[in-house]
């Protein structure tokens, strides 16, 4: 059984892995975990996870860019948990420079590192949920717009978002480039 490490911004992204051990009220693996299950249904499990905010660079200005440092930290945490793959999403929040920073950090990774499926989530996980329902404005969602729309639909809680992913028809046509590449990477990262 392949072991995967999950990293995201919060509970909607990663379900129970965003919570502390003492508040284990969620049971699912969030949008990212459920999405990965859609492209690779069996042969793997989420073994551990952490939120981005737990990865803290205290050496800003003293070496490598903070995001590259965080990716190395993420890889070390996954290795500690005996994981062979990492699945993560990183909110862009309508700031293109965050997507560029992530792309640079991923490019700078050591080639022999863990398999990593990671993408800039534009603008946030609610945007991906709406995309999977077939809702995507021509110019994409703003963060506030996506969150407002999800609330209007009564989908602003983790289990509802996971259900949207589970009900997705599997068609990738029309999905954003970020989401599409994440699905491809996740399938590769979780393959035997």
């Amino acid at each position: 059984m392949l072991r995967a490490y999950l990293c995201g911004e919060g509970k909607h992204d990663m379900g129970r892995w965003a919570l502390s051990r003492r508040d284990d009220t969620a049971v699912g693996d969030g949008v990212l975990g459920t999405l990965a299950r859609r492209v690779k249904p069996t042969g793997w499990e989420v073994a551990n996870g952490c939120q981005w905010k737990r990865l803290t660079s205290l050496r800003v200005g003293k070496g490598e860019p903070p995001l590259a440092a965080k990716l190395r930290q993420l890889e070390q945490l996954a290795t500690d948990s005996d994981c062979q793959a990492v699945l993560f999403g990183f909110d862009v929040d309508n700031r293109p420079e965050r997507a560029k920073a992530l792309a640079d950090a991923l490019t700078a990774r050591a080639p022999d590192g863990l398999r990593m499926a990671g993408a800039a989530v534009d603008p946030c996980i609610e945007g991906w949920v709406l995309e999977l329902r077939g809702e995507r404005p021509a110019r994409g969602w703003t963060k506030a717009g996506a969150q407002r729309r999800v609330a209007e639909l009564g989908l602003d809680f983790t289990a509802a978002m996971e259900a949207v992913v589970a009900d997705w028809n599997g068609q990738r046509e029309g999905l954003s480039a970020g989401l599409t590449s994440w699905l491809v990477d996740a399938e590769w990262a979780l393959s035997e």
Binding site: T56, Q76, T79, D80
Partner: peptide, 20 residues
């Protein structure tokens, strides 16, 4: 695993990332 962990974390970062 201190040697491995400190390839990715400074001392302060290590404490923040692992401590509960």
């Amino acid at each position: 695993s201190f040697a491995n962990r400190t390839t990715a974390f400074s001392l302060g970062e290590l404490w923040l990332a692992y401590a509960d």
